[in-house]
Structure formats: C-alpha cells, structure tokens
Design a binder for these strands. Sequence first.
DNA 1: CGCTTGACACCGT
DNA 2: AACGGTGCCAAGC
Length: 106
Amino acid sequence: MDFDEKVWALCRRIPRGKVTTYKEIALALGTKAYRRVGQALKRNPDAPHAPCHRVVASDGSLGGYCGKMNSWKKIALLRKEGVEVRKGKIEEFEKKTVISFSSSSS
DNA sequence: CGCTTGACACCGT
DNA sequence: AACGGTGCCAAGC
C-alpha cells in the first residue's frame, strides 16, 4: 500500500454529498505532504474508481483538478452528488468537509 | 547529489 | 479580500 494508493482509497471512502481537503487526507495518512496527495490524485491510475472530484482545497475551492479547465461538467456532477458549487467554491464547505470519514465501513 | 517543480496550505502585507 | 512569500514532502531532471 503506497501513499498514493491510500489517497485513492480515502477518496473512494468519501460519502456522497461530502468533500474533503488535501490537507486532511495527507494528515489522515499521517503526513504533512499535502502536495503529495494532489499529485497522487493527479497520477490517479484508478480515475473512475477514485472520486478525486470530491477532494477540494482547504479554501473550499475545486483546487486545480478542473477549476482551471472547462471541465465544469464535474462540478455539475458534484452538485448532483449534493455538493453545491458557487463560482468554483463549495457551498457550506466547512459543513461538507468530512474529516474522519475513516474506514469504519466494512 | 543538488536544483526545480507540483491537483496545497498558511502567514504576512 | 487579494496577492506575495515561505514551508511541507516527494519525484523529476
């Protein structure tokens, strides 16, 4: 289980309608390399299996996974999940940011 | 081995 | 509030 794999694993653990920050993920893995998390998702070999779009920046913004592209389709998808996005920012971000989504399931 | 870069984060101005 | 600079950890050149 590499660091990156853990990241994708966490992403898949994120409940629908909720999001998490790179920071929390990194800390959850026991590190301070927020950037490593982002790169891990970027390299994401399991893209369709890892809802990286549920991972946002600490500001509540989409970050860079699509916020700079015209791939706002993902944003629309987030809204369908229950995550309201305003101008590229998460509504009620602080309330949707799930931290200890942990591995209690299964 | 050392410098630079990177889907970030935080403090200071 | 927006912009700039610095810190974090790892990978690439």
